[in-house]
Amino acid sequence: MMVFDSLLALIIAALAWRCVTVRDLFQAIVTFIVLGLMLALSWTRLDAPDLALAEAGIGAGLLGVLLLSTWRVVRDAGPDQGEGPPPSPWVRTAAAVGSIALGTAFAVVLHTVEVDSDRAGGLALESLGEAGVEQPVTAVLLNFRSYDTLLELGVLLMALIGAVLLRSPLIHRPAAEDTGTESPLLPVLVTVFTPLVLLMGTFLVWAGAHSPGGAFQGGAVLAGAGVMLVLGGRLGGDAQVSLLLRALLILGVSVFTVIGLLLMPLEGAFMAYPEGLVYPLMVTIEFSLALSIGLTLLLLFTGTNGLRGAPA
């Protein structure tokens, strides 16, 4: 396997280099997406299959579609986007020297670091019995370090409000003049994306046997399904937002916070859960999180306030 790993690592480094240096923006984006998939592959080799799926689904998949859609806007606007002049050879040389030094330093550090094996993660693995879920990462995300997850939902919401403030929706309607040679991209995207979503759906079903599943992966699947509906013209962005949709967007963060605050006087700590109720609470929180995450990611994709079913 050493040969396979080395080859994979080499491919990753080469793709990163190509993504940064290739002239054409479109090729840079495609390289970035392939890089994401290769990273996902390498992370399965490092015992992190759940992260591999998150990277493939969110990092490469969802972000990839978003990058390609934005590329269309950039392309249609013409070549000159008022960017500054290319950096001088001096800057280039300095950046090259700096990055080689940085990379070397990191490589040396990663090879010489004396890892402490007595760590919080080991404690987390030992305390799984008290967490209410069996899957260790889910236990950390929803119980031991649930506060991080709660705040992270705030980041998602803020990014969405920012995108809404910008009023720069992506137009996904396959208009008459937009089909055929003008946009060979969409069908390709759908074909690339469908198996990914299916793969992740399968993973979630499988994970559900051991734990309530992963809220992030589940949310990503939801968003992925929504994105495909948008690309297929079945669902569209809408400037108007319904109260229901907004309520669903904040469902995760509200449920998480309110449960934590209500139980705080009883349990003596924020986000502490009574022993008998841990499992049902975890499931409730997880499902509301998945729903909110999925919808937020979908709206970040359409860049609009709301959603509506497009006229058939």
């Binding site: 040396v108 550090v109 010489t112 670091v113 004396e114 402490d116 760590r119 919080a120």
Partner: peptide, 26 residues
């Protein structure tokens, strides 16, 4: 820091970081 100290608590990482060699400095 987590690699060297095995913890993220601000009060628990000072010692391990100081003994962490190049990784601690990085």
């Amino acid at each position: 820091t987590y690699a060297v100290a095995g913890s993220l608590d601000l009060t628990l990482i000072a010692g391990p970081l100081a003994e962490g060699g190049p990784a601690g400095h990085m």
